[in-house]
Amino acid sequence: MERGRSMAAAALIGVAVMAAVDEIVFHQLLGWHHFFDRSTPAVGLLSDGLLHTAELLGLVAGFVLWADLRRRGTLSAAHAWAGLLLGAGGFQLFDGLINHKVFRLHQIRYVPDLLLYDLAWNGAALALLAAGAVLAARARRRTGAAGRDGTETGR
């Protein structure tokens, strides 16, 4: 089993899925913001299109890596599930802290008091990260430490 590659491939999928959820729900369905809101509406739509392109490329690349692991019989499903949640939570937290607060590319929603939105957004990210960390720890205990050649040593 390739634990690290299983986790990395699924983490890429998790990042892309969370980007898709963000874009579909908050950018398109609710219309709360665009990826880049500090310019014209046309630039906002362009930035959403670029985000959509990146998320699709991430999904394709992640699933190609995942399929290769499955084809070779080296996919660790337990590590992949952990990676999926870690990737999704990592994207969500990066978006909430870096894109929203540091770079100020956009806010979750343009309202006078953002605190509840920020707490919910970043709280959801932390919950995904915590669930992914728990799954990663369980997967590591279940499969044992990897040997020098990358194979599982088992317990």
Rank of each mutant, 00 (worst) to 15 (best):
residue 2 E to P: 00
residue 2 E to T: 02
residue 2 E to R: 02
residue 3 R to W: 07
residue 4 G to N: 12
residue 4 G to A: 14
residue 5 R to T: 00
residue 6 S to Y: 10
residue 6 S to E: 11
residue 6 S to H: 05
residue 7 M to H: 06
residue 8 A to F: 03
residue 9 A to R: 00
residue 9 A to V: 08
residue 10 A to L: 07
residue 12 L to Y: 07
residue 13 I to W: 00
residue 13 I to K: 05
residue 13 I to T: 14
residue 13 I to C: 08
residue 14 G to H: 05
residue 15 V to L: 14
residue 18 M to E: 01
residue 22 D to F: 00
residue 22 D to Q: 09
residue 23 E to P: 00
residue 23 E to V: 00
residue 27 H to F: 07
residue 27 H to E: 06
residue 28 Q to C: 04
residue 28 Q to W: 08
residue 29 L to G: 08
residue 30 L to F: 11
residue 30 L to R: 10
residue 33 H to I: 12
residue 34 H to F: 13
residue 35 F to N: 01
residue 35 F to P: 02
residue 37 D to E: 13
residue 37 D to S: 11
residue 38 R to I: 05
residue 39 S to Y: 06
residue 39 S to P: 00
residue 39 S to C: 04
residue 40 T to I: 08
residue 43 V to M: 14
residue 44 G to L: 09
residue 44 G to H: 08
residue 44 G to Y: 06
residue 45 L to G: 14
residue 47 S to L: 13
residue 51 L to P: 01
residue 52 H to D: 06
residue 55 E to C: 01
residue 55 E to K: 06
residue 56 L to V: 11
residue 57 L to S: 05
residue 58 G to W: 00
residue 59 L to F: 13
residue 61 A to W: 00
residue 61 A to N: 03
residue 63 F to C: 02
residue 63 F to E: 07
residue 64 V to A: 00
residue 64 V to T: 01
residue 66 W to Y: 15
residue 67 A to K: 04
residue 67 A to F: 07
residue 68 D to K: 05
residue 69 L to P: 04
residue 72 R to T: 15
residue 73 G to Y: 14
residue 75 L to C: 09
residue 76 S to L: 04
residue 77 A to D: 08
residue 79 H to G: 08
residue 83 G to Y: 02
residue 84 L to H: 04
residue 84 L to P: 15
residue 86 L to G: 12
residue 87 G to V: 02
residue 87 G to S: 06
residue 89 G to Y: 03
residue 91 F to Q: 06
residue 92 Q to S: 02
residue 93 L to H: 08
residue 93 L to S: 14
residue 93 L to D: 13
residue 94 F to A: 15
residue 94 F to C: 14
residue 94 F to H: 10
residue 94 F to N: 10
residue 94 F to K: 03
residue 96 G to Q: 09
residue 96 G to S: 08
residue 96 G to H: 08
residue 97 L to C: 12
residue 98 I to R: 10
residue 98 I to K: 08
residue 98 I to M: 11
residue 98 I to G: 11
residue 99 N to W: 13
residue 101 K to S: 11
residue 102 V to I: 15
residue 102 V to W: 15
residue 103 F to C: 13
residue 104 R to P: 10
residue 104 R to L: 13
residue 106 H to W: 15
residue 107 Q to S: 10
residue 109 R to P: 01
residue 109 R to H: 02
residue 109 R to M: 08
residue 110 Y to G: 01
residue 110 Y to W: 09
residue 111 V to Y: 02
residue 111 V to I: 14
residue 114 L to Y: 05
residue 114 L to D: 02
residue 117 Y to S: 03
residue 117 Y to E: 08
residue 117 Y to G: 01
residue 118 D to T: 04
residue 119 L to G: 08
residue 119 L to I: 15
residue 122 N to L: 06
residue 124 A to N: 09
residue 125 A to M: 11
residue 125 A to P: 11
residue 126 L to D: 04
residue 127 A to G: 04
residue 128 L to N: 03
residue 129 L to N: 03
residue 130 A to W: 07
residue 131 A to V: 11
residue 132 G to E: 09
residue 133 A to Q: 02
residue 134 V to K: 12
residue 136 A to T: 04
residue 139 A to T: 11
residue 139 A to H: 09
residue 140 R to V: 06
residue 142 R to D: 14
residue 143 T to G: 03
residue 143 T to D: 13
residue 146 A to M: 10
residue 147 G to C: 12
residue 147 G to K: 07
residue 148 R to E: 10
residue 149 D to K: 09
residue 151 T to A: 12
residue 151 T to D: 15
residue 152 E to D: 15
residue 153 T to Q: 15
residue 154 G to L: 10
residue 155 R to D: 09
